[in-house]
């Protein structure tokens, strides 16, 4: 694999990581902590939204984030011909 291609692969990987970590931080530290008090004024079905993020939602979204990363990376690996 030449240097330009390797750099492009690494760039694609790190941008994906950056985007997913932004979601990770927003749902946990944003919705679940910093803005929880405000979000608690909104109800999701029967529970206050801030509480739901802190006790259920963030965990569910964490799981989804990992599956998304694994699927997207498999695609990027194939695109650059570096799949294992």
């Amino acid at each position: 694999m030449d240097k330009a291609n390797a750099d492009a692969y690494w760039k694609a990987n790190t941008s994906l990581i950056r985007n997913l970590l932004i979601v990770w931080a927003v749902v946990s530290y944003g919705c679940g902590i910093v803005f929880a008090q405000t979000l608690n004024n909104i109800k999701l079905f029967s529970v206050p939204l801030g509480f739901w993020f802190a006790h259920q939602g963030a965990i569910i979204i964490f799981i989804v984030l990992i599956y998304v990363y694994a699927a997207q990376m498999n695609k990027i690996d194939r695109q650059f011909g570096v799949e294992d």
Binding site: L20, L21, W24, S28, G32, A54, H55, A58, I59, F62, L65, I66
Partner: peptide
């Protein structure tokens, strides 16, 4: 809850 799960990401 978040502290012992978020690390897996």
């Amino acid at each position: 809850l978040m502290g012992w799960t978020g690390g897996y990401v």
